[in-house]
């Protein structure tokens, strides 16, 4: 544990110094750009055409979006699973947890609320 934990941390967004060759760097960003473009185009095609079973479109879009965010994190922000990135990944994981709680919790609570309430126009009627 201690030998690995003692390895130097690296700033988010930085690449390890030994990896800094121009050709290598440009290639990394090009791969990221290619993958991100591919995922974006697939998203627009899925949403804009009838090629995918309609009820599954929102899930497909969500999966594609999460995949593209992963591509951005790896190829543009250089977040890796290496020991020099543990702190960056832990902070990111905590952020993702809170984002999930806020969004999923809001949707969950409000859908129950809507189920248990009269439709809005009827409430307006009763207030008249």
């Amino acid at each position: 544990m201690s030998e690995h934990a003692r390895q130097a941390d690296i700033a988010p967004g930085d690449e390890p110094i030994d990896d800094r060759e121009i050709a290598k760097g440009v290639r990394g960003y090009l791969i990221g750009l290619g993958l991100a473009t591919l995922l974006t185009v697939v998203s627009f095609v899925v949403a804009g055409t009838g090629w995918v079973w309609a009820p599954s479109i929102p899930i497909a879009l969500a999966v594609l979006a999460v995949a593209q965010m992963g591509v951005h994190l790896v190829f543009f922000l250089h977040i890796t699973t290496g020991p020099d990135n543990v702190n960056n990944v832990m902070a990111l994981a905590f952020g993702v947890l809170i984002v999930f709680l806020v969004i999923a919790g809001s949707l969950w609570i409000v859908s129950h609320l809507n189920q248990n309430m009269l439709p809005m126009d009827q409430i307006m009627q009763m207030q008249r």
Binding site: A8, D9, I10, A11, P12, G13, D14, N87, N88, A91, L92, F94, G95, I98, V99, V102, I103, G105, S106, L107
Partner: peptide, 26 residues
């Protein structure tokens, strides 16, 4: 590393703010 990490924490909190706006939009 400290400057980058501190800014990383800020960015994550900024994204949490966006998450709140996303939740209200949804």
């Amino acid at each position: 590393v400290i400057a980058g990490y501190g800014f990383w924490i800020f960015l994550l909190s900024d994204i949490i703010m966006f998450a709140a706006f996303f939740a209200s939009y949804a």
